[in-house]
Design a protein around this nucleic acid. Structure first.
Lengths: 237, 237
DNA sequence: TATACACCTTTACGTTACGTAAATGTCAAT
DNA sequence: ATTGACATTTACGTAACGTAAAGGTGTATA
């Protein structure tokens, strides 16, 4: 199938100027130019465009993308696997931002003081990841694996052991909550246990614990039906 | 606590030029300027900066952010709740991109042909969401709720009924997989059932089904220990 | 056959959110 | 008194397009 600028732009959900620009900078040249000077794109270009958009999505600059896809050793299949890893990483970041938000919201409701440092925790982690994405292995090669990992761990402010304990608690909570939902009685012992575990879990990342803040967070979770879904069913990839 | 440009920039993980720029465009002015002309930021500015970074994270332009946070009716608490919703939305988009990627990878392994349209499905959905984020209610007010919803549904190419069935299958699969994991026998009847359900589930979104593609995807899932986690434990928000 | 209209072209200047450099002043410690 | 890490302003550069101008192309319809 062959496409003109407008056709391909509609297909890919971008505007035609973008395609002309990509031609201009030599990122994506059309298969051929017809007798009237129109750009005509073929199958190969469509697949290349898909690759380009994947990388763009990941925040890679167009010039980097150009290097990557014009590299003769470029292997689409392993590149796709890399994409996938990067996207999963990104979702992890998002989760962190969300949990940071939860902390902020709860702290405002419950009168807990968040330190200035904590207010920006989520963003900072995001920066780290963004850097990794943009400069790839370069940083690690320059400063060494160990230094980078240590610095990342430091920002989260947990030892590996603490982190393990924390994630462990999380799975206990879900199990307990499921049982509690099954019995359907919020006043039951199980629900009580779940709340207690949740409290412990929160203590790991919250600056200090308060009943009000916990209640505030719980109410928000109940209000947001999207959240209940998480405890109700599990999520698929 | 008071901060100078460098101090605040380190705290928030941005560079000092950014703070000077925000001062320049009137987005974030320092509390005061000391006798040597240094910018000094106070508590209020720190909280405002956190808000600004949240909005920036969501892709809102600085001029829009300026409007929003200087609006006298601006309410931080409800803004935070909105932030949370937007981030959850965003994670949903990411999931879509990932599933699109899975399809691409599997189709290459299994020799399934993806139509040109399908190759860009994930990006398109992302564009829609991005528009919503940037122009907010404006589009809906202009064209009406219904038009927007219909167009979104159309892009996904499913009726509401199909969509329900699809998500339903997903939860059946997880249940079955859990049981299968519990028995620990991959050749068991349960595992067989899970694979079958998974096949059905894939059929909803894949252009056509092939054993090879399915096996390819399964292998990839097994290879990626992050994926096994999803079926092993459930995820917390 | 003419006209309308939606497409295509190139040239070129504008925009956003900073990056970067230059030239210079400030402050705490040795 | 000097060093070195901080601060300041001015000002030009950059990425990835947006947008407008001025015009050619292709096909359906009066």
């Amino acid at each position: 199938m062959e496409y003109t600028v407008k056709g391909l732009s509609k297909l890919a959900g971008i505007i035609s100027r973008t395609l002309r620009y990509y031609d201009e900078i030599g990122l994506l040249k059309p298969t051929r130019i017809n007798s009237s000077g129109y750009r005509i794109y073929g199958q190969k270009e469509i697949d290349l465009l898909q690759q380009i958009l994947f990388y763009r999505e990941l925040g890679v600059s167009l010039s980097k993308i150009k290097e990557i896809i014009h590299d003769p050793s470029f292997d689409i299949d392993s590149a796709l696997i890399e994409h996938r890893k990067a996207l999963i990483e990104r979702r992890k970041q998002l989760d962190l931002l969300i949990s940071n938000l939860d902390k902020t919201i709860a702290s405002r409701k419950g009168g807990i003081k968040m330190s200035d440092k904590e207010k920006f925790q989520g963003f900072k982690q995001k920066m780290i990841e963004e850097n990794e994405r943009k400069y790839g292995k370069e940083i690690r090669e320059k400063y060494g694996e160990d230094a980078v990992n240590k610095s990342n761990a430091k920002i989260l402010g947990m030892t590996q052991e603490q982190y393990n304990e924390w994630t462990n608690l999380a799975s206990q909570i879900t199990e307990t909550l499921k049982e509690a939902f099954a019995t359907g009685d919020p006043g039951s012992e199980l629900a009580q246990k779940a709340a207690d575990l949740h409290k412990q879990w929160l203590s790991f990342t919250w600056p200090s614990y308060s009943k009000e803040a916990h209640a505030g967070l719980a109410q928000m979770y109940v209000d947001d039906e999207r959240f209940t879904k998480y405890y109700d069913k599990e999520q698929l990839v």
